[in-house]
């Protein structure tokens, strides 16, 4: 592994927002492809941050700052990417109707984007119909639903049921997350997966993308 790509990983782990741009340029100048830098530098750097977050060494502020560090590098890399390159697929993210909490959803979006997914973020308080309409029009194969409060469980259920009624369940995977959700709830309402953390969500969507 080239030292320059290891430096990209370290910059993300150390939240070095001012240094990452120059490191990305250096990697490109050394002949590394943008895809390789994203896969071996950016994604691996985020993996380290994610692991530290799960182990309690890093906090939410670290995770968000790591996302900002990645955002500094991505335009430099995207400019040089092959326009015909194939990503991992499209994920629609939404905080369900009635709920306006968004930080968790935004972190998931940031991590998925940095790992090769196209993210359509519908925002907060999103009605089920809008989520399904977007799934139909975009052809997205993945939906991520977020909710914090127990009173929003029915809003999640509504999306899952409506997706079934609309005949989308064969082609769309629905992943739920947020404080009011659980594996039990996921099974009970017939969603496809439950992610406790943003890193979980990445693993789940990566598995789906790899299997598709």
């Amino acid at each position: 592994m080239k030292e320059s790509i290891l430096a990209v990983r370290r910059a993300i782990d150390e939240l070095d927002i001012d240094g990452i741009g120059a490191l990305a340029v250096k990697c490109l100048e050394e002949g590394l492809s943008p895809e390789e830098i994203i896969q071996e530098g950016i994604s691996k750097g985020l993996e380290i941050v994610g692991r530290k977050f799960e182990e309690g060494e890093y906090f939410l502020a670290d995770l968000i700052m790591a996302g900002e560090v990645v955002k500094e590098a991505m335009p430099i890399l995207k400019e040089r990417m092959n326009p015909g390159g194939r990503g991992k697929g499209t994920v629609i993210l939404a905080t369900v109707a009635g709920d306006i909490h968004e930080i968790g959803k935004n972190i998931v979006g940031m991590i998925l984007s940095a790992n090769g997914f196209e993210v359509i973020d519908l925002g907060v308080d999103v009605p089920a119909q809008r989520i399904l309409d977007t799934a139909k029009s975009s052809g997205a194969r993945f939906i991520g639903l977020s909710a914090l409060l127990t009173t929003m469980v029915e809003s999640i259920r509504e999306v899952v049921s409506a997706a079934g009624a609309a005949g989308l369940r064969d082609r769309v995977k629905i992943v739920i997350g947020g404080a009011c959700t659980s594996m039990e709830l996921c099974k009970e309402m017939g969603a496809d997966a439950y992610g406790e953390t943003a890193i979980d969500a990445l693993r789940i969507f990566n598995d789906y993308a790899a299997g598709a």
């Binding site: 939410l60 968000i64 900002e68 930080i103 935004n106 940031m110």
Partner: peptide, 9 residues
């Protein structure tokens, strides 16, 4: 996201 997080904090 960063400014929104700061405001939230």
């Amino acid at each position: 996201m960063l400014h929104a997080f700061w405001a939230d904090s």
